[in-house]
Amino acid sequence: MTVETPKEAWTGTVREVTLGATADQGGTRSRTLTVGAESTLPFLHFEASIPNPPALALEIRDRKPDDWSPLLYEAWGDVMDDPAAWAKAAEEAGADLVYLVLSLTTSDGSPNTVENVRAVVRKVLDATGLPLAVIGAGQAEVDNELLVAAAEEGKGERLLLGLCEEKNYRTIVATAMANEHLVQSRTPMDVNLAKQLVILINDMGMPLERIVMDPTTGALGYGIEYGYSVMERLRLAALQGDKMTQQPMIVTPGEECWKVKEAKVGEGVPETWGDWEPRAIAWEGITAAALLHSGANVVVLRHPENMRRTRSMIDELMSSKAAG
C-alpha cells in the first residue's frame, strides 16, 4: 500500500524582514537577522520552503527592573545593573536579537529622560554586535518622547521600535521612517485588529518589509489558546494570500509568563505545582514551544535556560532530516 503525504498548495508567503544593519548597510551591527519568507506552516519542510529559522531574542532593561521574579535576578546576576553588560550576556547566552525595554523611571525613581535613553542605546549598541529592538515603557506620551530619542541615537541601525498600538503608533512609525528603523505592531488577540494596524502603519508610508506584528499571546494557563489560534489563523490567512497578514510574527512569552503567579512566585502556591524553579522555567519554555508551533518568527524570552532549550528545539525542527 502506498501512502501519499498530503501537501497543501499555498499561494502566499510570509514577508521577509531583516533587522539590524551592518557597516555596509549603514549601521554598525556585526550581523543582521532575517526572519519570515516561509511558504508553509511551521516546520513543514516537505511542503514548501522555510528559508529562515525562527529567531530568539532576550529581553533586557535599561536598568535593573524592580519587579522581576527572583529567579531571573538569580539567573542574570550583576549584569542587570548595566544594560551594556546585560546585552553582552544576552549575546553570549545565544540570542539573535537584544530586546531592550525602556523603563518609566530611572533607578532612583525619577522619570526616565531622553538623555538617559540615548546613553543606554549607545552603550548597548557598542556592547553587542547583535541587532537591537528598543521598546517603550508602555505609556504613550513617555514612549513617544523616549523612542524618538532612541531612534535618532540608533539612526541607520535598522532597530525594531515598539510598541505600535492602535491608539499610539503614529509617532513611533514617523520616527522609524525618519531614521530607517522597523516597527513592532501589537494588537490584542484578534486577527482583524492585527491586520488593520498593519494597514494603518503601512498607510503612513512604512514599507511592509519593515513591520513585524505582535498578535499578543497570553501565557500558558492565561489565555494562550486565544493567542495560539489567532496566530494560526493569521498564518493560514497569510499562506492563503491575504497580503496584510503576511508580516512575520513576534511574540513575548518571557513578558507574559514571568508576570503570572506560576512563574513569579515560589511560596504560598499549591504543592501540586511542583518545585518553583523548574516549574517557572517550564512555564516560559512550554509557552514558547506552543507559540513556535503556531507560527512565531521571533520569540522574546527572559530566562537564559529557555534560550538554550528553545534553541535546541528550533535546531532540531530546522534540521534537514526529512519526514519518512
Binding site: L220, G221, E262, W273, G274, E277, A282, I286
Partner: peptide, 15 residues
C-alpha cells in the same frame, strides 16, 4: 515531576 506535569496538563487543557 509536578513541575513538568502541571504545565503540560494546563497546556493540554488550554489547547
Amino acid at each position: 515531576d509536578p513541575s513538568v506535569l502541571y504545565p503540560l496538563l494546563v497546556l493540554r487543557q488550554n489547547i
